[in-house]
Design a protein around this nucleic acid. Sequence first.
RNA 1: UGGGGUGUAGCUCAACUGGCAGAGCGCCCGGCUGUUAACCGGGAGGUUGCAGGUUCAAGCCCUGCCGCCCCAGCCA
Length: 432
Amino acid sequence: MADGVEVRHLGQHVDQVVEITGWVQTTRSHGKIGFVVVRDGTGAVQCVVAKKEASEEVWQTFADLTQETTVRISGQVRADHRAPGGHELTVTALDVVFASVDEFPIQPKEHGVEFLLDNRHLWLRSSQQRAGLRVRDEVEMAIHQFFYDRDFVRIDTPILSGAIGESAGTLFETDYFGDKAYLAQTGQLYVEAAAAAFRKVYCFGPTFRAEKSKTRRHLTEFWMVEPEVAFADSDDNMRLQEEFVSYLVQRAVERCADELAILERDSKALENVKPPFPRVSYTEAIAFLQEKGHDIQWGSDLGAPDEVAISDQYDRPVFVHDYPKAAKAFYMKENPDDPRTVLCNDLLAPEGYGEIIGGSQREDDHDRLLARIRDEDLPEEAYAWYLDLRKYGSFPHSGFGLGVERTVAYITGRRHIRELIAFPRMINRLYP
RNA sequence: UGGGGUGUAGCUCAACUGGCAGAGCGCCCGGCUGUUAACCGGGAGGUUGCAGGUUCAAGCCCUGCCGCCCCAGCCA
């Protein structure tokens, strides 16, 4: 088994006889010549069986193949322009490793979304799904590389916690030895603590929101990367974000050209994604939207159509910064130049992908933070340790959270973020 | 939660004004030596989401319920 060849390396074995293992993607039979396309996880190759040249046994095995049968094939590698991928295999031996005992549900044709999600465990084998998840893998590797290269320390934050986070109504509750525990909806508060230990830190992991959202931009379980930097202000924070997002996008463009082609993503739309990104204050954004006829007043949060109208003005992601205090979380630092607002930013991706980052400078003053916790009626005891960070050598610091699925959806041009996670969790989907 | 849409064969969809429930793909059988979601001929495959109602007659009309999709809100 170990001496087999991966399909992606077939070009190095032209005219040699090699063995491959994989799954039957399609078969086409013509009476005395047959074609079987085999996918091995690294690529797909067309294998040719000619009745005149193959043994009776090989011919009969070929005739019985069905979609997704697991096979082991030996054959001679030939360069042939008629074959997808440029190479094909002239079959000399063909063995069924495991039969595909029923009709494979997912056929090479259109299917409905519900059916595909019910069969997500099988849908993963499709070329566009494979391509999307490959880009995700590249982006995740790029995330770690970016921060490792800049001396950030990765901190793995807890998934189970007491009541702590942004707003209580959207937490998944679970039993914890007779007490209530909640699934994390952010690692931010914990990386704030770690920032005083390592200066530059980030966490990366799943996060859970019990929001009853039913949009193409929401999952109940999604992955988020959250850097936190000591002695960084809001402007430093936005500079880090534009450098970070540009790095992720360019990494995918450079290293996932094949995948983006399979996804029919025009990478020209991504080539402009380089610093600096445009910056629009919330107050400027409201003026712009009112001029465009949107029904919106200073003080209310931006809705999805508002965000689209703003991001449509630019060829790369755009920052909207310094939102009204009331529209944002309790831990954000008040803007000294305009106390109605806090030092924060969203990063809006182009083409209607919406908010891929939310970030802010954190409130570093103990008494102001305590006042905000009381204003919002949050359980003070649960935040005692968080307030401690402002008692023992407080420090200016900023950070942000980037949603992995939204970012990869934007990069790949997929409409719905549920395709960019292997097993999406949504309000009405816990299977498979 | 609100607005809009939708539910028919394993899958994707048709079925005129209420009048015999159909096609393509997949599957099975047969044919074909260069196919690219091959093609040609034949076959099997149905509680039209569920429960009521109107009617000589309901996939189609009415009422209720359920599922799903899209949009909005919430957010990354």
